[in-house]
Every structure is written in structure tokens, then in C-alpha cells.
Design a protein around this nucleic acid. Structure first.
Lengths: 253, 253
DNA sequence: CTAGCGAACGAACGGTGTTCGTCACGAACA
DNA sequence: TGTTCGTGACGAACACCGTTCGTTCGCTAG
């Protein structure tokens, strides 16, 4: 009966003395959960993929691991570091071929497409990428590939550094933009990218059509062309533009 | 004397009946402050320039205008819209020359440098820009300039659309990256960009030097070249790369 | 068997964007 | 002249956020 007054048996110590009720009840002797950085990164990536960048909070990650947010900080310095870890984890999915500088242009194109593919697959990770300096192992692995390719193709190291930098900016910048569109799509409750693109470009076209033709003659005249290409076409165009520019700068040319 | 009991005279109505003290004291009959969207945008831009992107909150803007955050929402839908308005306000500082398609390349270069200058001057506004679709008047004004220039130079409208899109991505993406560096600089308590660059690249170099030379031979061999160029050089290189690529695609070429 | 160390974590702090309901004021109308 | 009405101002609150503090264990080394 006394156990019902004080609740569970936990309110009594082994010698039968009741625990004063103002003592906060002790934690259940759960089998202490085994956290780790890998577990946290994996959970974060899962949330990023399933629910988007805006849903990724320390609290949400902790919830996913059935714990409190404070527990994460033993394995991860802060949210920024977590994002960088997730980013490098994603870069690990990049598949690299054997380097062949005789076909540097094809290989560079393939590399860019591969990065584009991976960043597109984990849509929102790019939002964490622009901020970070290439410092993770997978980022370095990719960097070594590109840099080596350019050097072995005969490019001066100083220029190859610039090329690698600008190429990265392009890849990440484009992915970042894509991520923002995906967030917009999610907010609109859509799931089909094609449908989103059509609706979106339709809205833009409508807006442009309402512009005064006198002040914006060229924009007004070519509205259909302005909204014709989707993200993929735009990405490819920019990529080829850079690759061609590069070709002109290669010593062999 | 009774006025001291109940406080100020405001506690009495005109007919002498005291106001019950549990009635919360009415607001001071201040000359109602005149908010406006322009005032809010201007205040926001001031904060962005002086204190950086991370300091820009609705509360901070309200504080700047001696009011509460709720008051802003009568003039601005939400923070995102405020950021877009600030962005377009900044784009208004872009000076455009008379269009001259005979010198499209020089004019396009000058345009990009001008945008780069303006975005660099209001450092953090780019963080708000990547997200937004060109919809503000100043954004359209700039778009019409670039688009008209390319069209009049003989480029196919469909391709000109792509070029304008990729050029914008480049300009904003680079400015965004610059803004992140500026935030880092601010966090480190530095004010001189040159000093920041040297410290920063020094850290990167140190880190790279510690890498295993066997797995990253090329990176390891050319560390000095990797960190040699600052943001300005990198920007210029990427710009010329795109401009040259464009030249090859112009019908005249 | 015990001491100590590091992981786990509840609670709290100081912030955020945004909404709700109320209030004051000026203009329009009776 | 008196009254209604719409709109902007705004205090308070909501539901979050990242992060820190102090405490409580469980495991391991001695």
C-alpha cells in the first residue's frame, strides 16, 4: 500500500527507508545508449534527405537518436562541424576513375557530372558546403583528383589552383541554388520536380508578361526563351562554357 | 496628494474619477511613429553593413527603429521578403553605361565588375540573393541590360538566357562566398582583409603541409600555389574564363 | 572493491521568426 | 459635430532554435 502512496518501488531504498518525495526521481537504469560521431552524422544525413535543410536541427538529430540535444556535443563541436561532417560523408559517395590526363576534358566533365549527381542526390547538403573549406578526407580526395588531372595535362600549378577553385564554386553554387528550389517545392507541397518546374516557370513567365514592354523590351520579347531551360540544361551549359574556356588555356591548344 | 497615491495624472480621467490601478497603464500618447517599408529596408541594410548578416534579425531592425518586432509586419510580409527588398535596394546602386553591342565583351566585363563591386561593398547582401528570383525593379533593370547586350551582339535569345543565368550565379555565388569569409573575419575579431587572408591561407597551408604526401602528391607539392591567390584574383580568373568561352560562342567568332 | 573519468542528459539561457488581440489615431461619413 | 471604421503600432506570447551548466551515472583501470 505504501508503494502506491509513493508510487513505484524505486521510492524506497533497499533498507526500506522511503525516499523523500521532493527528491527528484532517479533516471531509469536504462542500458546507456551508445552514441558515436558516425551515428550522429548518419542520422543528420537521413534528416537532411528526408525532411530538408530547414528541418535539420540539433534537437531533431537528437530526437532521431532517442536522446537529448546536449548528448550530441560530446561527439560534435557544434552544428557547423556537424554540417561539415555530413558534407564530407556525402562526398565519399563520389566515384573517381583512374586518372588519364590524355583525356582530361572528358574526365573533368565526368567528374563534374558525378559531383553534380551526388550533390543532387543528397539535395540540401550543398547549403552546408559553400561555407566550408575543403578539409575533410573525401573533399581532399576529390581535390587531388582534379588537381592532378590538370597538372598532368600540362597546366601551370598556379592556374590549376584557380581552376579547381572556380570549378568547385560552380558545382556547389549550382547545387545550392537547386537546394533552394527544392525547399520551395517542399513548401508548396509538391514532389514531382517536373511539375514544380512547369508551375514555377509559368509564374515567372506570367510576371514577366505583365512588365512594361517599353522599359524592358528585350526581356519582354523573349519570355519563352527565358524560362525554357530547367536546372539541368543550365548546369550543362555553364559546365561546357567553362570546359571550353579551359581548353583554350591548355598549353597544348 | 491623491495624484501621488495613484501616480501620475494619467491615472485620472477628465472627470476626476481615478483609474483603477489594476488597469494597465495606457500607452504614452506619443506622436505615433511613422514606419514605412523604405525606413525598414534602410535600417536593415544599415545593420547588414555594420554588423553583418548574422546580426540582422527582425528584432534588431525593430530596435533600430525604436519599436517592437511586430510593428514591422505591417510593411513587410516576413524576413525573406525583407531580405529581397534589401537586395534589390542594393542592386539600385549599380551604374549602367549606355549599351554598345559592338563592345559587348568590354561592357559585359565592366558590368560584372560593377556588380562585384556593389555586392562587395554591401558585403552580406549576397546571402539573401541566391535564394531570390530576379523580380525587383533594379534586378530587372540589370537583367535587361545584360540580356539586351547579348541579343544585340547577335546571340540567340535561348542561349542569351542561359548566359545571363550562369553569369548571375557566378556573381552571386562568388559574393556569397566572400560574405562567409567576412563573417569568419568578423568572428576572429579582424578588420583588415589583407591580414585575414594571410592568416587564413597560412592556416590552410599548414594543414595541407601536414597531409600525407603519398596519398595527395599533387596537392602536397604545390601548396604555395594553392593558397597564392586571394578572392579578387580568383574572381577575375573565373570571369575571364567565362567571357572567353562566350566569345567563342558569339556568331561573329 | 573502489576511484575516477568521460559520456549521457535534464534543465535552463538567451536568442529567433511570427501571430494574436488590443489599442490609438486619422479620415470618412452621418 | 459626433461616430464609426480601418489601419498601423505594439505588448505579449508561442514554438522553436543552438548551446551550456551541472549532475548523474556506467565502465574501466588500479
Amino acid at each position: 500500500m505504501s508503494s502506491t502512496v509513493f508510487g513505484m518501488d524505486r521510492t524506497r531504498t533497499t533498507d526500506g527507508v522511503p525516499v523523500p518525495p521532493w527528491r527528484k526521481s532517479r533516471r531509469q537504469p536504462q542500458p546507456k545508449r551508445q552514441l558515436s560521431q558516425d551515428l550522429i552524422v548518419e542520422a543528420g544525413l537521413r534528416i537532411l534527405d528526408d525532411e530538408g535543410f530547414d528541418a535539420l536541427s540539433m534537437r531533431r538529430v537528437a530526437q532521431e537518436l532517442d536522446t537529448g540535444p546536449a548528448s550530441l556535443y560530446a561527439h560534435v563541436a557544434n552544428k557547423e562541424e556537424l554540417l561539415e561532417l555530413i558534407y564530407d560523408r556525402v562526398l565519399g559517395e563520389i566515384r573517381l576513375p583512374e586518372r588519364d590526363s590524355a583525356h582530361w576534358k572528358e574526365q573533368l566533365r565526368a567528374y563534374c557530372l558525378e559531383v553534380h549527381r551526388v550533390l543532387g542526390h543528397h539535395s540540401d547538403v550543398a547549403r552546408a558546403a559553400l561555407a566550408s573549406i575543403p578539409t575533410g578526407p573525401n573533399s581532399l580526395r576529390a581535390g587531388e583528383f582534379v588537381y592532378g588531372l590538370l597538372i598532368e595535362a600540362g597546366m601551370h600549378p598556379r592556374e590549376a589552383s584557380l581552376v579547381m577553385d572556380r570549378l568547385s564554386l560552380y558545382l556547389i553554387g549550382d547545387a545550392y541554388e537547386g537546394s533552394l528550389h527544392r525547399a520551395r517545392m517542399r513548401a508548396a507541397g509538391l514532389t514531382d520536380p517536373q511539375e514544380y518546374f512547369e508551375r514555377f516557370s509559368g509564374q515567372i513567365a506570367t510576371y514577366y508578361r505583365a512588365l512594361p514592354a517599353s522599359t524592358f523590351p528585350h526581356l519582354h520579347q523573349h519570355i519563352d526563351e527565358l524560362v525554357a531551360d530547367d536546372g539541368e540544361n543550365r548546369f550543362m551549359y555553364g559546365l561546357e562554357l567553362m570546359l571550353d574556356g579551359l581548353e583554350n588555356r591548355m598549353p597544348g591548344a
